[in-house]
Design a binder for these strands. Structure first.
Length: 661
DNA sequence: TCACGGAATATTTTT
DNA sequence: TATTCCGTGA
């Protein structure tokens, strides 16, 4: 190996003793020098740690931090990794280029926007913006005539996004995943075109556009591609199993110049295929880059031996994967348990009893997590937790950014940046008394035509009552646009206007007001409104609605409730997986298709591998599913029939009669 | 055309 | 739980 010598030379004067703190495979990955490498990192195998050390190592070798690119799937992940490498080495690591694919795409596209023909820049639409726009267009296509169910805007957004991310025509997506909408193909295609046209006309990019445009830029402009590619000497990608085809293409182009690329991931934890992520990516990586070195991290540092044995067994039934079997040096530990509860409420009771038991034996609340397949599976439990005064945070499900009051406030700010922002205008105007759909439409079209609010309004004949209702908003708008205010001041002005409306509309306004105060403190950190809105779309705060953001620090003493998706990468001493019922987990929607079922299996694997010491599956005895008119009464097929050596069974309601559980 | 209330509905969703 | 949908009356 020609690089051996180079390594030797570079290592002199180095302050971290990598060999001592890393295991052999981790060490190999960290020291890997040049070329393509694929690191298959099993659950709990120290993947993040390996990346952190590799960043430090490259910087220590004298590679310019800026030319190291670390792509992750969340901003939090990249911030965390960089923070850790700063701590490990020094401040130089702060300048490492890092971020999500989307934020990376955004910054490149802004840099080259002139050459790309959108000189005025662009606004980013988040998921709910896309859905609103699609919803608007949908009304135009099918005006209330519901002779047959037409896909909802949410479904449409899914279809569109899948088609884009998988680089497949709409027809094929519908045919394969939504055959019941077959008769609607024509309308769906028309809608897709309208959606695309509207985005173009109004200079909006949705998430998928960011990737598409970046890929197009790199593909069609070789000189730009070369310049960008030359700027990144080393590229690392985390969670590679959840990238999609476009992202793989982008990587290929980005790595074109130096060809130093390391992808890290675990095919067994690929759980985002419904979004177009293709776990084939990780299987194909060695074909994309010739002479890929494959490094496997198989020593598990997280889970007790019985938990690891169970999760290994769960995974055995997966059909296509890189062969691996995680091992641990740990000894002892408790066998995971499948608990048969009477019904949903029995399940909640069991969880609460268990939590209280753990609390009395000294396990802190924040070391316990309850995981579930879908956001609403925890509703009953949430009520019971409230009743028993157990504090909790919930991740997954409705997001802070998706709640109506946050979107309302942002809409008021967004029209200041982009007067053509139709979705935001409708939203704002609908809040005004005496103005509904029709009037909002009229106002929007004249305003966007005239290019100014006042100009547009003067061209309209509105009733005196309507004008009176609008007055306050017009004042706000003029005030905001004409004066030199800071971002936070604009936010305050909007709140002054909006809070009375909020109080009128929602009974729970105190909670919502608190959210909005949080939003203000976030705004305070920005000096450009455009940048603030951009970040809110690209890197929104993560916790679910009911938690307010500043509480992050207080979360230490809270139980975690989370969807399995949002629990990825995290770990707890005690994990309780509720609704381990066939038809809930795996979801009924996944039962017909092999590939979907396999993803459910991986999802169960991800859930179970979060546990360090104790693992419980809880299965309510029966549940009726209205949508399919089916009774569910068997434990999840992924664990049902598991030998008792691996999985204990308990029937708490019966145990109550006999002995203490 | 707008406002309101009650009913129905919900997979998962790092961007 | 939160939002959206739909029908009704003003």
């Amino acid at each position: 190996m020609p690089s051996e010598k180079k390594q030797q030379r570079d290592i002199t004067g180095i302050k971290i003793d990598y060999k001592k703190v890393l295991n052999r495979q981790q060490f190999e990955a960290v020291m890997f020098n040049g070329g393509a490498a694929l690191v298959i990192a099993g659950a709990g195998s120290g993947k993040t740690r390996t990346l952190v050390y590799r960043v430090a190592r490259l910087v220590e070798m004298g590679i310019s931090p800026r030319s190291i690119l670390l792509l992750t799937f969340t901003r939090k992940a990249s911030q965390e990794m960089l923070a850790r490498s700063i701590k490990l080495l020094d401040e130089r690591c702060r300048r490492v280029s890092g971020g999500t694919f989307h934020s990376f795409a955004n910054s490149i596209l802004r840099r080259y926007s002139g050459e790309l023909g959108f000189a005025n820049g662009f606004s980013i639409m988040d998921r709910s913006d896309s859905e609103s726009l699609i919803g608007m267009l949908r009304k135009g296509i099918r005006p209330a005539s519901t002779r047959r169910s037409f896909p909802t805007r949410r479904t449409l957004a899914n279809i569109f996004s899948k088609s884009v991310n998988k680089c497949l025509p709409l027809e094929e997506i519908i045919d394969r995943d939504y055959p019941h909408f077959g008769p609607d193909v024509e309308e769906i295609v028309t809608l897709f075109h309208q959606y695309g046209r509207h985005k173009r006309d109004h200079q909006f990019f949705d998430y998928d556009d960011l990737l598409i445009k970046l890929k197009t830029l790199l593909e069609t402009r070789p000189s730009i591609c070369k310049r960008i590619s030359a700027g990144f000497e080393y590229i690392m990608v985390d969670e590679y199993q959840d990238t999609n085809q476009i992202q793989a293409d982008i990587l290929y182009l980005l790595a074109g110049y130096h060809r130093n690329i390391m992808a890290v991931g675990d095919d067994s934890q690929s759980i985002y295929s419904f979004r177009g992520a293709s776990f084939e990516n990780i299987m194909n990586f060695p074909e994309m880059f010739k002479d890929t070195r494959i490094i496997r991290l198989e020593e598990n540092y997280r889970s007790s031996r019985p938990i690891l044995e169970l999760t290994n067994t769960i995974l055995e039934s997966a059909s296509r994967k890189y062969p691996k079997r995680l091992f641990t040096r740990r000894k002892g530990g408790d066998t995971p348990v499948l608990v048969h509860a009477t019904d949903e409420n029995g399940q909640s009771q069991f969880v609460i009893d268990k939590i209280q038991e753990f609390l009395t034996t000294g396990t802190p609340l924040n070391e316990i997590a309850v995981l579930f397949r879908a956001g609403f599976h925890s509703f009953d439990l949430e009520i019971e937790l409230g009743r028993h005064q157990v504090p909790f945070v919930k991740y997954g499900g409705f997001k802070f950014m998706e709640s109506a009051h946050i979107k309302d406030v942002l809409a008021h700010l967004r029209v200041l940046i982009n007067l053509q922002d139709r979705i935001s205008w409708y939203r704002i105007l609908n809040l005004v008394d005496r103005i509904g759909q029709k009037t909002a439409q009229a106002i929007y079209s004249t305003v966007s035509h005239a290019g100014s609010l006042t100009g547009g309004l003067s061209a309209l004949t509105l009733s005196a009552a309507q004008m009176k209702s609008l007055k306050k908003f017009i004042d706000l708008y003029i005030h905001a646009i004409n004066s030199n205010q800071t971002v936070a001041q604009m936010g305050e002005a909007v709140l002054n206007y909006y809070l009375p409306l909020l109080k009128k509309q929602y009974d729970d306004h105190p909670k919502r007001t608190k959210d909005l105060d949080q939003l203000l403190t976030i705004m305070d950190r920005y000096d450009r409104l455009g940048k603030f809105l951009e970040d809110m779309a690209l890197e929104p705060p993560t916790a679910a609605v009911e938690n307010n953001l500043a509480d992050e620090a207080e979360n230490e003493h809270r139980l975690v409730l989370s969807t399995v998706h949002s629990a990825k990468g995290l770990e707890w001493q005690v994990v309780l997986i509720i609704w381990a019922l066939d038809g809930r987990f795996p979801s009924l929607h996944a039962l017909d298709k092999e590939a979907d079922l396999e993803e459910e299996l991986r999802l169960m694997y991800v859930a179970a591998t979060r546990a360090k010491e104790r693992l419980f599956f809880i299965c309510p005895g029966h549940a009726y599913d209205r949508a399919s008119n089916r009774f569910l009464n068997r434990p999840s097929r992924f664990i049902d029939g598991m030998p008792v050596d691996y999985l204990d069974r308990h029937f708490p309601s019966m145990d109550d009669w006999t002995h203490d559980f």
